[in-house]
Amino acid sequence: MTAADENIQFHTIAILVNNEPGVLARVIGLFSGRGYNIESLTVAEVKHSENLSRITIVTSGTPMIIEQIKAQLERLVPVHRVSDLTVEGPFVKRELALVKVRGSGENRVESLRIADIFRARVVDSTNSSFVFEIVGDTGKLDAFVNLMAPLGLVDVARTGVAAIARGAAAL
């Protein structure tokens, strides 16, 4: 570990791109090719009429690297806008997880009780399993998953982070 590592920060970056073939590969290739980290990545079309998709990336690095990441993203031809939500003011960050727990008896009851505390919903149930749907920030989801582990956790699917700035301003 070098001195620079102490300076690692996490940033949530929103990117507005043309929804065209290869655009995601271009973004991901930039990160892998230049050795940047991807902690989480989500993408979906957000404006069909203008053919725009929004990518949300949570990344980490020194302040110099974060600046580089943004400049490199801006340079990609199909990228319209890059916004560093972490520095641009308060923002809301959400992730959705589907969590499958298998078990019976006491464990089953306990998992339901915890789900209730976390405001997770049951979206599928059998005699021996539940699938919970939970929405929240990454930390909340991590906590929920950890609590489910001893109760029969067998499968987790997470969407990765979607984020948006608070207030009236838009990307």
């Binding site: 110099m64 600046e67 580089q68 400049a71 490199q72 801006e74 340079r75």
Partner: peptide
């Protein structure tokens, strides 16, 4: 001309 060259 390339902002990514700056402070790289």
């Amino acid at each position: 001309i390339d902002p990514s060259s700056i402070n790289k």
